[in-house]
Write a protein that binds this DNA or RNA. Sequence first.
DNA 1: GCCCATTTGTCCGTATGTATA
DNA 2: TTATACATACGGACAAATGGG
Lengths: 144, 144
Amino acid sequence: MIDHESGIPLYLQVADALRKRITTGEIAAGAELLSESEIAAVCGVSREVVRKGLTVLRSEGLIVSVRGRRSAVRRELPVEQVSVVGPARVTARMPTPVERDRFGMVEGVPLLLVRAGGGEMLYPADRVEVCMLSHGAETRGGPR
Amino acid sequence: MIDHESGIPLYLQVADALRKRITTGEIAAGAELLSESEIAAVCGVSREVVRKGLTVLRSEGLIVSVRGRRSAVRRELPVEQVSVVGPARVTARMPTPVERDRFGMVEGVPLLLVRAGGGEMLYPADRVEVCMLSHGAETRGGPR
DNA sequence: GCCCATTTGTCCGTATGTATA
DNA sequence: TTATACATACGGACAAATGGG
């Protein structure tokens, strides 16, 4: 499972192993992981190494951690459709701590920035999908 | 500067202090920070606390770190305009390590997902802006 | 090309605090 | 209240990459 001789950082090996089990669905959304100490014992590494691996997964938005509880696979939230009509530009960046707090976002979730009509709107990317419609557009011909 | 009695985690205080100096432009894009040891000495905390604070800023996409060099404020990249014609849905998430590698993305930069015309395209959010044009739209710039 | 000081990265250990159940 | 579990903080040690001389 964990190869101490491979030269690959142990915390990355821990993160990689867990990520695979999460993305394949072996560990379902909402399910709890083993405790940090248990993972450390199973993998034969220190708890700090496990914590560093979990930090990686948190920043990827794969798990959420709450003090006193085992870390759990992040649940998918219902996606709200936000429509914009006419010329608009959309990009994304990570939120500031203030923005994370304001929108109640967990770690590892980007912020969507929609600029249209002279204003700018911000949306948490795990709950919002931006639907861009050109004015009087028909449904035909996308890019590529 | 750093208050050991405030109850606010020291590494967050370090991150907050540096974030403010970065976002206000006091430390310009591309400029190097002090070394971790120097920051630790200045702030009166351990190097591990400083490293944890820098990890926060990295995951926010504010700084980039390279082994052997001091961490530096992330430079803004020229933004490529990707235009879409017809209805499109745009969202964002953090990239997997494989995707980060494929696109040459640094830490703390989200991935833009554009679904249009039955397909899905991926773009690094620090280099690409998705544009929806109203009339006579043309598609400039291609996928990578 | 090579050494050397600097600097960040990895890993371990210990201790303590604090939230959860 | 108690046990579990995650969070914070410090310390030391060594590895690996950078950049200058």
